[in-house]
């Protein structure tokens, strides 16, 4: 839509006004890391963050979400979408959210996700600090970030604010935005292009090459065994993943033992239980009983299975899995290298 400009000083006033009137989330410091959290005053917002522990999807697709409330035999859906703004979402997370939007919408639209999402305004921001394990410069390189409402790029003395939707345009009235100059818009574009080359790690192959070779490696048990030897099946890679969206559903009663909730929880295909079925009489069948089968499933799901639907890999290169894995075997950059060289 439009390109606006705001000085650093006015940006602080803008934030102050915004957080007083709206629910605003953004990256904040937690010890030596960052997390998306509620912002109550402008100085909390750390647009210079590198990456957050969990991706911003948690705000509209929380780790624990009630689906239904029941009380005896009456029941109702738990839908309570709130208008909220997420500030400072990096491009890799914007791409991930766009994927989730598609996946929750396709075939059977999931209102528990979509209603929250629709009420959420997503304002991206340029990457000022580069996370050590990130490789977004080369992950799904052909996929453009889209689906966000606005985007902030920090110049020396202020921000260029690109509005892409009405939701973002409505925010402009909160402060002294002026029309951005052509040079400022160009400068912002330059910054966002240049940063792509600055990732410490890089995939040396195209998404299509990776998908083909990875799929062909399916039966290479020796490879998967080697890659997954130290895997804890702990689910850290899935739980921190920007594009993972699998969930479990459980019922529980409230203390009155009558009412209660049907609730969904983030789930993880790396855990032993994920593909287990009960056959009766205590017998179970686990469709992915082996560590290497679960490891392979995650890799396939990130690099192969969803590519046709998504137009690119279900990996955006945020590097969260690589950071979270204490055995240091989850890094897609290394996994891809091993597969391609196998």
């Amino acid at each position: 839509m439009n390109h606006h400009y705001i000085t650093l000083k006015d940006f602080n006033l803008f934030l102050t006004k915004l957080v007083n009137q709206k629910i605003v989330y953004g990256p904040v410091a937690r010890k030596n890391k960052f997390v998306f959290d509620l912002i109550s005053s402008p100085e909390q917002l750390r647009l210079d963050y590198d990456v957050t522990i969990l991706p911003p999807k948690k705000i509209f697709f929380p780790p624990k979400q009630h689906l239904l409330h029941f009380d005896g035999e009456s029941y109702k859906d738990c839908l309570d979408p709130k208008e909220q703004i997420i500030m400072g979402v990096h491009n890799y997370d914007i791409k991930a959210i766009d994927q989730l939007d598609f996946l929750f919408k396709e075939k059977n639209p999931d209102d528990h996700y979509l209603l929250n999402r629709r009420k959420t305004t997503i304002i991206g921001s340029n990457i000022q600090t580069i996370a050590a394990r990130s490789f977004w410069g080369s992950a799904g390189a052909g996929v453009e970030p889209k689906g966000h409402d606005g985007f902030l790029t920090k110049l020396k003395d202020g921000f260029v604010f690109e509005t892409r939707t009405k939701k973002a345009e409505n925010l402009v009235k909160f402060a002294k935005f002026i029309k951005a100059k052509k040079t400022q818009v160009e400068q912002a574009a330059q910054i966002n292009t240049a940063v792509k080359k600055k990732c410490p790690a890089k995939l040396a192959y195209s998404s299509a090459e990776i998908a083909i070779k990875t799929r062909l490696a399916f039966k290479n048990n020796e490879l998967w065994e080697r890659l997954s030897k130290d895997c804890f099946s702990c689910g850290s890679c899935n739980t921190t993943c920007a594009t993972c969206y699998c969930f479990d559903v459980q019922d529980s009663w409230n203390l009155d033992q009558k009412s209660g909730f049907r609730t969904r929880y983030w789930d993880s295909c790396m855990t032993v239980e994920f593909a287990k079925t009960s056959l009766g009489g205590g017998a179970v069948h686990n469709f992915r009983a082996l560590r290497r089968e679960r490891f392979r499933h995650r890799v396939m799901r990130k690099l192969v299975y969803l590519n046709d639907k998504l137009g690119g890999p279900a990996c955006v290169g945020c590097g969260r899995c690589a950071t979270a894995c204490t055995a240091d075997i989850a890094d897609p950059v290394n996994i891809v290298k091993e597969i391609m060289e196998a």
């Binding site: 890391k33 522990i53 969990l54 780790p63 689910g235 739980t239 239980e273």
Partner: peptide, 20 residues
Amino acid sequence: PTYPVCVECKRNETICRYDV
């Protein structure tokens, strides 16, 4: 639950002990 504690730490966004 049968999954490991890592899952809960990550959901809580607790700083991993190994990171400190």
